[in-house]
Design a protein around this nucleic acid. Structure first.
Length: 644
RNA sequence: GCGCUCGUAGCUCAGUUGGAUAGAGCAACCGCCUUCUAAGCGGUCGGUCGCAGGUUCGAAUCCUGCCGGGCGUGCCA
């Protein structure tokens, strides 16, 4: 028997008992099993309220009757020790020895992949995440995306699916030209090598520079006649009058105008804007010099990203570049227009009426000048992926501010290809908010937390701790441990939040290794390994019948709690796979580590002082716990340390 | 304006899709190292689950309305 079958066993007993009472099978299944609040009441049970009306009896009486019948029929069931009527609830008390035997055997066989491949009908998923721009280094927001994407991929893979991980790099467009232009003007032949900078940071420096130079230019222009004329016109306009009512301060009011006008200025009057756009045109015309510069600078960024991804433990099976995909989708839009799915609007743009997909408004898919919008290439790219890869589902890990975009994308795709209905998924997540004072985490621009800085800060903090504890340890080993601990801390901190939760990133909290953290869980694992080291290794796994006998030596509250936690793993896995939310793995791993630590510290649980069956059973139980901790942490991308 | 989303302990978050006495971590305070690793364990303090109604045997969870925060609502990417 496997751990997952325990729940199935209870489930079928419950269903049959209810059906025997005359409850329709469907209703029987709807009554869910849940953990009993305390061990005296049993381990797992179900309420009988819903049956009261049908059976015309009070819930406690129904529970009594069911309990009585089950007690008789399950008398020889080796897994169920007792059926208990607790008021209106029917609870099963499991036989700890049998439970331990099932768990220990599976844990020993499957080591660090306990419960892998449980899904009934595996499919092929393509999952896209990260999707960075090549004009600046990655920051905390990307870190959440990267870690979440990687972990969701692990979850899908662990369930038994085939998973193809893809990245889509945004390597073209006006924003990329901004850093290129600055480098062309002020780069002076410098390179990442010559400056000793990481490639993405090197390029990011020029992107930031563009912002500064453009602001300078804009500020000068603001003082000129043209700007002042436009300002007066705006102040007299409807919008200006409206704003004036809300904003009394003249300086602020003027600023409001100049803020909204900034884009227009960039697109019409600005010298830098003009140069940037010319560069984009040159790029699109395949101008040799511009293309060469583009390739050089992109390569610098890719090299930088590779380092970041490697350290984060993120890897992709396929990388798409927007410079290749941005043309996609045009033909589809034209075909859709012919088929009457889309329509033209004033000025000649092609649009989709969103009422067709239950939303409102028109979504432009081709501008009146014939060019594409972002949605167009997303449509094209998605269809191409389904054509070129034998995939069943496509998932995008993107922030929840783009929910609407994906609703539209999926809706239009289903209009074009009805067979794609239900196969598209937006794995959305909340933003990462930063506190005002960032302390040591603050970065060059001051507004974001840089991914590389963050990882280094975590590493340094961990190194201090490691050196304090193990001053004599070989330096390489110190560094290896600090890296593992620092990254575990970061990953756990990011992943233990629900996907949809807005993370309030507090560096002090993130960098802490105590309490509900990654290192806490690793520590529990390391302690388990140290038990084996100190007590002469793990015992041989006995035959099942013997194992049950040996495990009957277990029975303290702490041991039972731990066993019940281990038992719940398959259920947690199912929930995680259904919701595609690794935070529940993080929660489980923490609870498991916590149950173990409680037992470990509770008096009467020192294995060194035990002998006979109790000692063997405890050792095997601890080993199983260690295996499951490793299994869970792996899904989160966290590696364990044998010693820490 | 409309749409989505969130509001749980001083702070940061869980809460098994409607069940049993609402839980953790941090912070504060009190204890536990002659050691199977104190990155740990135990304890104390801390709650009108935003507010008001409704549905239900039963609501932090579902519905309605208010209050408050975030996001979205481009011929931007």
């Amino acid at each position: 028997m496997k751990i997952a079958e325990i729940e199935q066993h209870l489930e079928s007993i419950k269903n049959q008992a209810l059906i025997d009472l005359g409850v329709p099978a469907e209703q029987a299944q709807e009554i869910a099993l849940a953990d009993a609040p305390n061990p005296e009441m049993g381990d797992r049970g179900f309420p009988t309220f819903a049956l009261a009306r049908v059976l015309r009896k009070g819930p406690p009486m129904i529970a009594q009757e069911i309990t009585q019948k089950l007690s008789e029929s399950l008398a020889s069931d080796e897994l169920i020790a007792e059926v208990i009527a607790a008021g209106p609830y029917v609870n099963f008390k499991l036989n700890p020895a049998k439970l331990a035997q099932i768990i220990i055997e599976q844990a020993q066989q499957e080591t660090d992949q306990i419960g892998k491949g449980f899904i009934k009908d595996p499919t092929h998923w393509m999952i896209e995440y990260s999707a960075p721009n090549t004009n600046k280094p990655q920051h905390l927001g990307h870190v959440r995306n990267d870690l979440l994407g990687e972990s969701v991929a692990q979850v899908l893979d662990f369930a038994g699916n085939k998973v193809t991980r893809v990245n889509l790099i945004n390597d073209r467009g006006i924003h990329i030209c901004k850093s290129m232009l600055m480098y062309q003007m002020f780069g002076d032949g410098q390179t990442p090598e010559s400056t000793g900078k990481k490639g993405d940071h090197f390029v990011g420096y020029y992107y930031v520079m563009f912002g500064q130079k453009f602001d300078e230019e804009y500020n000068v222009w603001k003082q000129g006649d043209e700007a002042q004329t436009l300002l007066s016109q705006w102040l007299e306009s409807e919008a200006g009058q409206k704003a004036a009512k809300e904003i009394t301060d003249t300086g602020k009011l003027h600023n409001t105008f100049f803020k909204t006008y900034k884009d227009t200025y960039f697109n019409t009057q600005s010298t830098l804007g003009h140069l940037t756009r010319s560069m984009l045109v040159a790029w699109e015309d395949n101008d040799a010099d511009v293309r060469a510069l583009w390739e050089t600078m992109n390569q610098w960024v890719f090299d930088g990203f590779d380092e970041t991804y490697k350290r984060l433990g993120v890897a992709f099976d396929k990388v798409y570049y927007e410079s290749d995909t941005y043309i996609l989708g045009k033909g589809i839009v034209e075909q859709g227009l012919k088929d009457g799915i889309f329509h033209t609007i004033d000025g000649g743009a092609i649009a989709c009426d969103l009422e067709k997909i239950g939303l409102s408004g028109d979504k432009i898919l081709q501008r009146s000048n014939g060019t594409s919008v972002y949605m167009t290439q997303d449509l094209g790219t998605a269809l191409k992926r389904f054509e070129e890869h034998d995939i069943d589902s496509m998932a995008y890990v993107v922030g929840d501010e783009q929910r609407h975009h994906f609703q539209v994308l999926f809706g239009i795709l289903a209009l074009l290809k009805p067979e794609l209905e239900g196969k598209m998924h937006h794995i959305s997540y909340g933003m990462v908010e930063l506190p005002k004072g960032l302390g040591r985490m603050k970065t060059r621009e001051g507004t974001t937390v840089d991914a590389d800085d963050l990882m280094s800060a975590m590493f340094e903090e961990a190194l201090t701790e490691v050196k304090e504890r193990y001053p004599d340890l070989d330096e390489d080993e110190q560094h290896a441990r600090a890296e593992a601990i620092g990254m575990a801390s970061l990953k756990f901190f990011i992943l233990y939040f629900n996907r949809t939760t807005t993370v309030h990133f507090d560096p002090k909290e993130a960098i802490d290794f105590k309490g509900k953290t990654g290192p806490y869980i690793m520590y529990a694992y390391a302690r388990i390994q140290s038990i084996a080291r100190e007590l002469g290794g793990w015992p041989e796994l006995p035959e099942s019948a013997d194992l049950i006998k040996i495990c009957s030596a277990l029975g303290t509250k702490q041991e039972l709690d731990l066993l019940n936690r281990l038992r719940a793993w398959p259920h947690s896995l199912e929930v995680v796979t259904r919701d595609l939310d690794p935070s529940k793995i993080a929660g489980f791993a923490y609870d498991l580590a916590s149950d173990f630590s409680t037992m470990y510290n509770h008096k009467g649980h020192k294995i060194k002082d035990m002998d006979g069956d109790r000692r063997t059973a405890q050792l095997l139980l601890c080993r199983a716990t260690g295996n499951l901790l490793e299994t869970a942490l792996k899904i989160l991308g966290i590696e364990v340390l044998e010693q820490m």
